[in-house]
Design a protein around this nucleic acid. Structure first.
Length: 212
DNA sequence: CAATAGATCATCT
DNA sequence: GATGATCTATTGC
């Protein structure tokens, strides 16, 4: 397991670097790509975003928003820069960030984080993780590790206890693209983005097509 | 290493 | 009543 220094708390106890709402008010795929390398902060816990997926609007049958406004999906049609947290498989919660201008649905699923701060608390919340790299290496794992639940649904991530921030050297990496994971519809759409070679990415790229 | 089963419930049909 | 943007343990090669 890679050893990493935790980031100093004083850097996440201020509002420094919080991404403005305009960052999210763009096409979901652009926001998904640009979210890589940014820092997700909740209280004293923080992690670097290393894997995301974009979910679009009415044409994207894999997206919750494709069936229109329901009690669950209404936040997707609201202003950007808010959290959309939903419960899945009777057991897990997934964090999305609403993208696109108000009235246009779209969001970014945060799929994996590289833990940076609050590692002890993450370990307590994820006792089954065997290494630090596994603490938040999946959409259900990261909400557990970060203490994010449905109570954050609709929360404004440009202020408050749950925020996303830029970091000085957050673009020194290569980005890989692939289809999204675990969906039936629109399987070929290249809407998954991840930091190449990062050990916290949930699933590494499949080996190329079989020879012959 | 790959495939699979089981856990468990909000949401929508 | 079926399904699902998942995770873990277990089984089998």
């Amino acid at each position: 397991m890679t050893k990493r220094a935790e980031i100093p708390f004083r850097n996440i106890e201020t509002a420094a670097g919080i991404l403005p709402r305009s960052f999210y008010s763009r096409p979901a795929a652009e926001v998904a790509r640009d979210l890589l390398g940014k820092i997700l902060v909740h209280g004293r816990a923080a992690g670097r975003i290393v894997e995301t997926e974009a979910y679009l609007g009415l044409d994207d049958r894999a997206a919750h928003a494709s069936r229109g406004i329901t009690p669950r999906t209404k936040v997707l049609f609201g202003p950007p820069g808010h959290a959309y947290v939903y419960f899945i498989y009777g057991m897990y919660e997934c964090l999305n960030l609403v993208a696109e201008p108000k009235g246009t649905p779209g969001c970014v699923l945060i799929r994996a984080l590289e833990p940076l701060a609050g590692l002890a608390a993450m370990r307590r919340r994820r006792p089954r993780a065997r290494t630090n790299d596994e603490l938040a290496s999946g959409p259900g794992k990261l909400t557990l590790a970060m203490g994010i639940t449905r109570r954050h649904n609709g929360a404004d991530v440009t202020s408050g206890s749950l925020t996303v921030r830029s970091w000085p050297d957050d673009s020194r990496f290569e980005i890989d693209v692939s289809p999204r994971i675990g969906i039936r519809y629109c399987r070929d759409w290249p809407l998954r983005f991840f930091i190449a070679g990062n050990p916290c990415v949930s699933r590494h790229p499949v080996a190329g097509p079989p020879a012959s």
